[in-house]
């Protein structure tokens, strides 16, 4: 009996830590799957395309990690991205006349994009905290507002960036330094910064505390409302950064820009192991989650083995399995 118990304990010590490495495992499985499906999957061009694509959702999801860790939720990010993209295009087209065709116009557009993102996040945060309304409802509301505003500005159509300015702006999406495309670089920088802020600073610790138990946070002299509002502001800034690299891709924004990005961002966060009800978050998990989501779409595009109509099924199944991998208790129940 004693012998048996002892050998069991030793065996358990070598158990794989699914909770921590689950997302990586799922990612690895996907990479293997992708390679099997089509060798073109691992080609440099495809990998670069995929990482670049994942940058939008990834950057937004880094912001969402903060919001969700602190116990909130932001459903407005997709339409906020469309809204910011729309405003940015209008502003740059307008500035052409005064500032001319050049980087000055683009930089002004970028700066304003960050300002709008900041303000939009601030609104979400303040209405949630000061107005004491559920974040779900507040951001559901702003989601509709931003979406309809962009439709209004575009007059139901598509807002397109002026051709001349687009030629200058285009490299921000398409060019690379040392073989790393700018969007991937931006994603990496945002992720590293997010990691440091969430795990190494007081603000990050306060996010965890508020997400686990708001009362405890309050009784620990944390300015709960201030921290929560700041998470939405961070989210807004992340959305604006994502928009800055999105606009040069196709140079346009319309009512269909960024549709369902909010759900993709939330899915990336949860796949990465952050707890939806708050209190625990991890940035690197989110990064893996965002890459995985893009990868699934990519792999489906690389094969004709699966009916196009079943894409959603495959996507849904993989997401659930990925989360199961890390949540499931794979040890023998005692």
């Amino acid at each position: 009996m004693t012998e048996l118990v002892r050998s069991m304990t030793t065996a358990m010590r070598f158990d794989f830590d699914f909770k921590t490495y689950g997302p990586f495992l799922a990612l690895l499985a996907l990479i293997i799957l992708g390679t099997l499906v089509n060798p073109a999957f691992v080609s440099e061009a495809n990998m670069t395309n995929m990482l670049t694509r994942s940058a939008f959702i990834g950057i937004i999801a880094v912001g969402a990690t903060f919001v969700i860790t602190a116990g909130g939720i932001d459903l407005s990010v997709g339409s906020m991205a469309a809204f910011i993209a729309g405003i940015m295009i209008i502003i740059m087209n307008t500035l052409l006349g005064t500032l001319g065709v050049g980087w000055l116009t683009i930089l002004t557009g970028m700066a304003l994009s960050v300002v709008i993102g900041f303000a939009a996040g601030m609104i979400n945060g303040l209405v949630t905290t000061r107005g004491k309304i559920e974040a779900f409802i507040v951001t559901l509301g702003t989601m509709g507002i931003y979406r309809s505003l962009v439709t209004y500005f575009a007059d139901g159509g598509t807002l397109s960036l002026d051709f001349s300015i687009r030629e200058i702006y285009r490299p921000i999406y398409y060019d690379a330094v040392l073989g790393i495309p700018y969007p991937v670089l931006a994603f990496a920088l945002v992720a590293v910064a997010g990691y440091v802020v969430l795990n190494k600073t007081r603000f990050g610790r306060h996010c965890f505390a508020i997400g686990s138990n708001e009362h405890v946070a309050k009784y620990s002299a944390i300015h709960v409302n201030r921290v929560k509002t700041l998470t939405y502001v961070l989210q807004g800034i992340c959305v604006s950064i994502a928009t800055i690299i999105y606009v040069p891709r196709l140079g346009s924004a319309s009512a269909s820009t960024g549709v369902l990005w909010e759900l993709e961002a939330i899915a990336a966060v949860i796949i990465g192991g952050t707890v939806l009800k708050g209190g625990y978050g991890r940035i690197w998990g989110t990064v893996v989650g965002a890459i995985m989501l893009t990868m699934i779409g990519n792999i489906l595009n690389l094969t004709d083995a699966i009916s196009n109509y079943l894409n959603g099924t495959v996507q849904g199944a993989i997401i659930i399995v990925a989360v199961l991998l890390q949540r499931g208790n794979w040890r023998r129940k005692k």
Partner: peptide
Amino acid sequence: WNRDDGFEVMQDFLAR
């Protein structure tokens, strides 16, 4: 019938 999807699907066709 969407630009972003057109871009991504075509990128993958080109890779393939």
